[in-house]
Every structure is written in structure tokens, then in C-alpha cells.
């Protein structure tokens, strides 16, 4: 089933800057797709449009126009893991992960014990359950990224949108995040993430969309599109795709 369809999408900011130009792609349910490109290529704008944060009529989710989704319905379908979240209030980790239950609450309702259990399970999924009562402002950068992931997991949406999920992480935390994302993918979640890291894209994604200056350079299975020639065109620099044992390495 088509989870996401983008049909000739162009997007221009009110300031007049054209960020996306005639992008078309479709994502099947359960796929893991990397949006790969250099800084300023339009990856984050594309993610914003797919989230519904920037308005567009050229995007469909599960064969239904994105613009026809209600706010809560969309929240139950898509969850966002931003690159960074700034907090000025010191919520406990459990309180924060409970925010992911918002699309399931009626009107001005508050979370139930069942929601608390789901949120706690999400903390278990990312390995932060022992910190459930700690304040979020005491977390390290890596734990912080795991927390954002836990909130998105608690949202129980079928699709996760992730903005540069490992860009600010050390190798150990990067490995943890990748492992969790692979587990989520195995469980059937559709993943769509932006990255400028070709190695991450190859490691985590089944399909890769290469975006350059707002245009889609190519889109297909990673084996088809992640080639030395395409990467060199994408980044305007010499890059090599090499096979080292069973691993594919890009340098």
C-alpha cells in the first residue's frame, strides 16, 4: 500500500525563496527511506511539507490528501523526531514522553494510566526507563535524542519522520539510535529520515531519495541509486562507494 505519495511538489517560502522544485516520489508502507543531500538542499523543507507544517496540496498519505487530514488524525498517522528541541521547563522524562499521547486524547482531556503505561513502554524501547522520573534538562545530548524518539514511539503512528536523527551524536549513541530505528523498521514502521550522511542512508534505508538544490536527483532502492557517480554529482566532490567484506562503505 502507498503510505506516501508526492506528486510534482514545488514549494516557495513567502520571502520568495524557492526551496523545492517539482519533486515526485512514492513510499510504500513499511519502507525506510532516506532523503539524502547536502546542507541547504531542501531536505528539511521537504520534511516540513510532509508533516503538514508547510501547506501543500501535492502530498497524499495512504491515498488521502494530506490537506484533508484533521490535526489529531494526522498526529496518529505521522510522528516527528526533530533534530533538536529546546526546553525551558524541566519536565520529567515520563511527562515529556506522555506528550506523544496528545492525538489520542479527547478535547481538553488529560492522559490516562493506560497512556502512562504506553509512554513508559516507549522509554523502555529506547532504554531510558530507569530515568523516567528524572528531569529532561539533566540529559546528555545522546539521551536527549533517545527521548525525542521515545515521544515519537509513544505516538504510535504508522510513519516516523526524522530530521537528521544522528547528526549530533557520538559513535556509541549513534549506534544506539540506529539499532532502535532498525528495530522499529522491522516491526513495520515506515521511516522517512533526512540526512547528509551517505553511510547512514545506506545502512538504515531501503530506498534513497537524493535532493540537490530543491530538485530530486534520483529516487530508488539504495543499491540502484547510491553509486559513486550519483554521490559525486550530489555533493560536487569525489566520493567512492566501496565494498568492505559484507559492508558497503562510502568515503
Amino acid at each position: 500500500m502507498n503510505a506516501l505519495t508526492v506528486n510534482h511538489l514545488s514549494f516557495t517560502y513567502p520571502s520568495g525563496t524557492k526551496a523545492l522544485d517539482d519533486i515526485s516520489l512514492s513510499v510504500q508502507e513499511g519502507q525506510s527511506v532516506a532523503i539524502l543531500g547536502s546542507n541547504g538542499a531542501g531536505k528539511s523543507t521537504l520534511l516540513d511539507v510532509l508533516l503538514g507544517w508547510q501547506k501543500s496540496t501535492e502530498v497524499s498519505l495512504y491515498d488521502k490528501p494530506l490537506s484533508s487530514y484533521g490535526r489529531k488524525e494526522l498526529g496518529r498517522t505521522l510522528a516527528l523526531v526533530p533534530q533538536f528541541e529546546q526546553y525551558n521547563f524541566s519536565f520529567s522524562l515520563l511527562d515529556y514522553v506522555l506528550f506523544g499521547r496528545s492525538p489520542y486524547l479527547s478535547g481538553l482531556g488529560t492522559p490516562s494510566e493506560e497512556d502512562a503505561e504506553i509512554a513508559y513502554q516507549a522509554l523502555c524501547d529506547v532504554g531510558l526507563e530507569s530515568y523516567a522520573e528524572r528531569h529532561i534538562t539533566t540529559l546528555s545530548g545522546g539521551e536527549h535524542q533517545l527521548l525525542l524518539l521515545a515521544r515519537a514511539i509513544a505516538q504510535q503512528s504508522s510513519m516516523l519522520l526524522l530530521d537528521e536523527p544522528t547528526s549530533a551524536l557520538d559513535p556509541a549513541n549513534r549506534k544506539r539510535v540506529i539499532t532502535i530505528l532498525k528495530q522499529l523498521h522491522t516491526k513495520g514502521k515506515t521511516l522517512l529520515f533526512t540526512t547528509h550522511d551517505a553511510n547512514l542512508a545506506y545502512d538504515l534505508a531501503s530506498h534513497v531519495a537524493m535532493v540537490k538544490k530543491g530538485r530530486l536527483l534520483c529516487y530508488g532502492s539504495k543499491e540502484e541509486v547510491v553509486t559513486t557517480a550519483m554521490l559525486t554529482t550530489l555533493y560536487d566532490t569525489d566520493l567512492t562507494v566501496a565494498q568492505v567484506g559484507t559492508k558497503t562503505l562510502i568515503y
Binding site: L51, G75, A79, L80, P82, E85, F89, S102
Partner: peptide, 23 residues
């Protein structure tokens, strides 16, 4: 008081509160 729990979400970045179903 009706908004007492949702106020939490409105203290987050706008895009985040939007992504969890808020307006």
C-alpha cells in the same frame, strides 16, 4: 484550567506541538 495539560505542549516548539496533533 481546561487547557491545563495542553499548556505543556504549547511550551514546546510550535512545530513539535503541531506534530502531536495541536493547533
Amino acid at each position: 484550567l481546561g487547557y491545563r495539560w495542553k499548556l505543556n505542549l504549547l511550551s514546546l516548539q510550535e512545530k513539535t506541538s503541531f506534530s502531536v496533533g495541536m493547533n
